[in-house]
Design a protein around this nucleic acid. Structure first.
Lengths: 134, 134
DNA sequence: ATTAAATGATACTAAATTTGTATCATTATA
DNA sequence: TATAATGATACAAATTTAGTATCATTTAAT
């Protein structure tokens, strides 16, 4: 079990670099040099972050990306919701079948509760705090 | 992201059934009927739970499994440690390579902290509490 | 003794998810 | 007009999770 996937790890590295240099537009080419993230994967990730409104993108020669929000307003939770949450944080393991152990679903309640707790913590971690290392 | 894998879900269902009928030895055949868990998978899981000391096993005809501990002394954390923890809860995403963003590893610290929190919660959920539905 | 019904150990396979690649279209600047 | 960027999207590889199969050993009843 990993709390976050690689998408999110890479997103943070990229966002952190962009945030530190936010006067310029930062191209994928630059980011690849700086972060060693595989290029096409990084491109896909940045495109997603653009669509989701975290980054502003500029096409054409000398194009690139800028933050679309303050690093104080970007949270790990945002990334989690973009990249992981769609896969249902804690769906019942018996997909469309009827769970034969309905009674035991207190477990689901408990896990949901823990899931919410994790998300609350993710909601406390801002990009700014990561950049500052606090 | 799933907080627990199917191994663990199945383990709980099986353990709960065994706990409720702990005067008898319960065979895999019986458990499959009751829980609809795929037989060979369940067998593998129970063998593991045996090795790990949660279950006592009886070979031979009319053999089966019994709890080796009180349901009050079996926690979700035990199952987590048996089935998931070995895969490194929160290992750095750059495996053997040097992480090019050392500074950003405050992130790892934060995630580790959340991981510990999750485990603490797992440590509060006993088999007994699941059976009772509280 | 023999048979039936169970677990032990362990190797193998399939499915799902995660990670990463490739390509073609469009856009902006020099 | 050439170049260097992003947008969209389909595809492929690697890893992890889930599930199967098989052979050996044990136990109880007949």
């Amino acid at each position: 079990m990993k709390l976050i996937t690689r998408d999110i790890d890479y997103s943070i590295r990229a966002l952190a670099y962009i945030a530190k240099n936010n006067s310029d537009k930062i191209s994928v080419t630059k980011l690849v040099k700086e972060t060693k993230i595989p290029r096409p994967f990084l491109r896909k990730i940045l495109q997603t972050l653009g669509r989701e409104g975290l980054l502003e993108s500029f096409k054409g020669k000398f194009g690139g990306f800028k933050l679309n929000k303050s690093p104080n307003d970007i949270y790990l939770l945002d990334l989690f919701e973009i990249f992981q949450d769609k896969f249902d944080f804690n769906k019942c393991i018996f997909k469309k079948k009827i769970c034969p152990n309905t009674k035991d679903c207190v477990l689901k309640e408990k896990l949901d509760h823990i899931g919410e707790m994790v998300k609350r913590e993710f909601g406390k971690i801002s990009l700014q705090s990561i950049i500052e290392g606090r």
